[in-house]
Amino acid sequence: MRNPSLPAYNFAYLDEQTKRMIRRAILKAIAIPGYQVPFASREMPMPYGWGTGGVQVTASILGPDDVLKVIDQGADDTTNAVSIRAFFAKVANVATTTRTADATIIQTRHRIPETPLAHGQIIVYQVPIPEPLRFLEPRETETRVMHALEEYGLVHVKLYEDIAQHGHIATTYAYPVKVEGRYVMDPSPIPKFDNPKMHRSPALQLFGAGREKRIYALPPFTDVVSLDFEDHPFTVQRFEARCALCNAQEVYLDEVITDDRGGRMFVCSDTDYCETRRSKGSQVGGLPQHGAAKADWEAAE
C-alpha cells in the first residue's frame, strides 16, 4: 500500500542508483572527449526516438535551481519539446524557459541555438545513432576496434564518394567531426550549419543515446573539426533568403509552405531567436515569397 505522504517517484524521475551510474558515465565521457561511454539505459515513460537518452542525461544532472529549455529542431513549441519540458516541470518541479540566455540546461533535438552559448551553460543532445561508423560498418565489435585503432579511413571514403557522385560533399546533417584530433564523433543529426558552433564552445556539451545506450561529451573549449579534404573544405549551407518574420540572415531557416500554389516562406528555425528579434523591432511583412527565394543548396541541385 502506498504511503500518501511519500511522492510516487524520485526527484527527476530516475532512481538514485541509475543517476549514479549515468553520472559516472558522464565523468568518464568528459575525461575522454568524443568517446562513446556505454551505459545501462533505462526505459523511460516515452518511446525510443523521443529523446530517452537526452532525458536520462538531463534527469541525472538536473537540480532544483536549474532553469531548463527544451528545443526540437530549434523550436520550443513543437510536440517533443513541449512534452519533455512538461515532463521535467512535473517530475522535478524545475523552472523552464524558452529564452536561450536564461537557461542553465538546454536539451536539444537536432539544433544548436543561434544565440551563442555561454560559459556555465550545459547543452544536452538527444542522439538517435551515436556511432558515426554505423552505416559504414554495422558490427559493433568492428566499429569498436576501428575507434580503438583510430582507423577512420572509411569515413573519408564515404565523403569522397559524395564528391564522386555529386561533385561536393552532400552530407548535410550528422556531419562527422573529429574531437581533439582523436575520436571521430557523430554530432547528432544537427544540420552541418551548426557544426562550427561546437568548436571551442564555452558551454559543456553532453550527448545521450537511449536506445543505443551511449553517452559522450565535449568539455568547454574542445577542438571539434568537421572532416573534409584540402581541395573540398568543409562549408556550411547558406541561405539567400532572409527570415520572413524577423528579417534575420546568416541563420538556419525552415521552409514553410503557405498555400497550394507554390507559396512559401523561409523563417528562423530557432523560434526564441526569431521572437527576441521581433520583440526588439526587427519586423518584415511575413508575406509568402512566391518561388523567388531559393536556398543556394537548392539552386545548386
Binding site: L27, A31, P219, P220
Partner: peptide, 19 residues
C-alpha cells in the same frame, strides 16, 4: 538529504572535471 546533496556535489564535480 541524499537526493539533493548528491546532485549538488555531482554538479560541482562535473564542473571541476569539465574545467
Amino acid at each position: 538529504a541524499p537526493v539533493f546533496q548528491s546532485q549538488a556535489a555531482f554538479r560541482l564535480v562535473m564542473d571541476a572535471m569539465a574545467q
